[in-house]
């Protein structure tokens, strides 16, 4: 298999991010290719969520290079300076990147269907008829065809998260980011969300998943990344990392969660 540039969806090189005096990302290097499911694990405060949020410029990076779909995220390089892009160009980049949040963040004043329609109708400006048909299809795909006219407040956490996945998919992104998508769910609801994500992975969606679900990572991930202290400590085949970790910190973390 030849690796071309267009295969590489995410390329991070020495990405740094500071919050005040605290350097939460200390030079992240990571490449994610089309069709890969990359699971990121690590203790809380290791910077994994921050890194994910940098990928669609919800957080600005302070140094290094970070590109998604072959474009620098949020910046234009002139010489050895990165100039932040105007809003118009940043939103265009974000439309290619789907994101699912830990706390769902559905729009509570809109029904499930309207949540899914928001992007296609009001951001992309797609014609209403086809957008509605597509939204219904997406809700069916996440198993919520009968909840189209329900407000988020009347849905369970698992159902809300599945609507949120449908909402992100409606933009037809090239990559999906999942920020601890099951951490806010009751244990019995975790499975239904993971099942939808497994389906996506089978269909070849490129996914980066920050998660604590080690079982999911072992089963679905094509690559496992272990982060600690704002750096990638170890990465590789999930079974290899989980069963034979090379670093002491990986071993210490896994011994606590497995």
């Amino acid at each position: 298999m030849t690796v071309t540039d267009s295969d590489r969806i995410v390329v991070a090189e020495g990405v740094r991010k500071r919050f005040g005096g605290l350097e939460v990302l200390q030079g992240i290097d990571l490449t994610v290719r089309a069709g890969e499911v990359c699971c990121v694990i690590g203790p809380s405060g290791s910077g994994k969520s921050t890194f994910l949020r940098c990928l669609n410029h919800l957080e600005k990076i302070d140094g290094g290079r970070l590109s998604v779909n072959g474009q620098l995220v949020g910046y234009r390089q002139v010489g050895n300076r990165l100039h932040e892009l105007p809003e118009r160009e940043i939103v265009a980049q974000r439309r290619e990147i789907g994101m699912v949040f830990q706390r769902f963040n559905l729009f509570p004043h809109l029904t499930a269907l309207e949540n899914v329609l928001e992007g296609p109708l009001h951001v992309k400006g797609e014609p209403r008829g086809s957008a509605v048909a597509e939204a219904h299809r997406l809700l069916e795909r996440v198993g919520l065809a009968d909840k189209a006219d329900t407000y988020p407040g009347q849905l369970s956490g698992g159902q809300q998260q599945r609507v949120a996945i449908a909402r992100a998919l409606a933009m037809r992104p090239t990559v999906m980011l999942f920020d601890e998508p099951t951490s806010a769910l009751d244990p019995e609801l975790v499975g239904e969300v993971l099942d939808v994500m497994k389906g996506l992975a089978r269909e070849g969606m490129t996914m980066i998943v920050v998660t604590h679900e080690i079982g999911f990572a072992r089963e679905v991930a094509t690559r496992l990344v272990f982060m600690d202290g704002g750096a990638v400590v170890e990465e590789g085949d999930p079974a290899a990392v989980l069963d034979d970790p090379q670093h002491e910190r990986t071993r210490a973390f896994l011994s606590k969660v497995l």
Binding site: L58, R88, V91, M99, N105, F107, E118, H122, V123
Partner: peptide, 15 residues
């Protein structure tokens, strides 16, 4: 989180 979710969809500030 509402603003972030809308930003992630590619919405502009005013919208």
């Amino acid at each position: 989180g509402q603003t972030e979710a809308a930003q992630a969809l590619g919405m502009r500030r005013i919208r």
